[in-house]
Design a protein around this nucleic acid. Structure first.
Ligand SMILES: [Mn+2]
Ligand SMILES: [Mn+2]
Ligand SMILES: [Mn+2]
Ligand SMILES: [Mn+2]
Lengths: 219, 219
DNA sequence: ACAAATTTTTAGCTTTGTCTAAATATATTT
DNA sequence: AAATATATTTAGACAAAGCTAAAAATTTGT
């Protein structure tokens, strides 16, 4: 598989997680930062190779083989992100671009050994699950802070938006994965929240609240 | 620079070390495993970009800019090789292929941090010098075992052939970098040697002797 | 010095992945 | 049910990097 094919497969995988029907040409084009006509061409090629199901005008979905391949690339990407943060002291907002390159390095041995060096991590620095070598992938049960019931508590386990500006904002406000957050109040007017974190009360906008994932305490 | 351009520049650099005049199209083609006509095309492009000096039929050489770029790629390659051996437990005969891919990852920060993680190594697993970030590069003073005077001693610091079969042969015979070797006898008939290594006498063929570098003890 | 052999370049073609513009299919309004 | 808007595909072109075959330059051998 070429690098470009791998990127298409990966994006179709990500889009497919939240979409039941076929993924549209336009959606892929937007993510790939390319034109819909280019997507049509590529999608035909991937279909010929048995990696996607494609019927003209009906969108695409991954075949089992394509899904397996996508999971492998996602695995690479996320393991490299862990490496960059844990071993090279990158911050979590700096790793994505580099991992976009590293994910395409072809060497099974390399990934196996990297996995071992990192202690077989199950989640990447943004809280996203790392598929196993065997292609198993289940996302953690989690809930957006903005949808958590009042007075509930949970551990911050992930971000929905993992763009650098958002991650930097969290750093600045001392919000990090692993912290316990209690949802105290919701202001209905603007959808903002008052939460307790680190024994301190804090006010966060709806924008923030709807991009933080919590694993709720079972009470 | 594209990956292909980088590979050409790197090969021109390596060929240029042992060649005074311009590097020939054919020599590059052989190393790149491509056809001379393709080399001509690429060399023109590199010339247009100011990376090589090229006059038709006269071969090519690197410009200062091209050399700087080549050193950067060699630096990447060798740092990654150190990483693979030191941190991921690859053996020295397994790292080259993977480093060929990793050397093209574009991130200055990544290389700086990798360098730091590895403790700013000056030589790669095969004993080859690692160019500095600033583009300084001097090879270690060393001598082929086959050209060392009888009864001289030295430390094994490098290999000329770093192909997997040769490296595996050395492993099998417990010859490794850092070991002290004394040159005891030379058999003029076949050019083979008797050496002392690890307090044991050993017979090695001329083939082996002329692919091992020693840093001679000053006496 | 010239013919032969070798090396290098040129010309023209291929594949990959992209683009624009035009055509066609699907979806949304009226 | 049209008409209109939007999404998608097709057709034709382009740049990168490679190839083969033929032409041209250089080197070598006599
Ligand atoms: Mn990422
Ligand atoms: Mn991530
Ligand atoms: Mn190498
Ligand atoms: Mn090396």
């Amino acid at each position: 598989m070429t690098r470009s094919e791998e990127n298409y497969i990966k994006i179709i995988f990500h889009l497919g997680k939240s979409e039941k029907k076929g993924i549209s040409t336009n959606a892929i084009a937007k993510q790939m930062d390319t034109k819909p006509s280019s997507v049509t061409d590529m999608v035909k090629k991937l279909s010929d190779k048995g990696l996607v199901n494609y019927r003209k005008y009906q969108g695409v979905s991954l075949t089992p083989v394509g899904r397996k391949k996508a999971l492998s690339i996602v695995r690479n990407h996320r393991l490299w992100e862990v490496f960059l943060v844990e071993k090279l002291d990158f911050s979590w907002d700096e790793v994505h671009e580099v991992a976009e390159q590293l994910e395409h390095i072809k060497s099974e041995q390399l990934i196996d050994k990297l996995d071992k060096l990192l202690g077989f991590p199950r989640f990447d620095p943004h809280g996203d699950a790392i598929p196993t070598k065997e292609g198993e992938f289940k996302e953690r049960i989690k809930q957006l802070l903005s949808e958590a019931p009042l007075n509930s508590m949970g551990i911050c386990v992930g971000v929905r938006d993992s763009s650098a500006p958002f991650l930097k904002f969290l750093d600045k406000n001392n919000i990090a994965l692993g912290q316990t957050i209690k949802v105290l109040e919701k202001e209905e007017f603007d959808g903002s929240f008052i939460i307790e974190i680190d024994k301190k009360k804090m006010h966060i906008s709806n924008q923030i609240a709807s991009n933080l994932y919590l694993k709720m305490d079972e009470v």
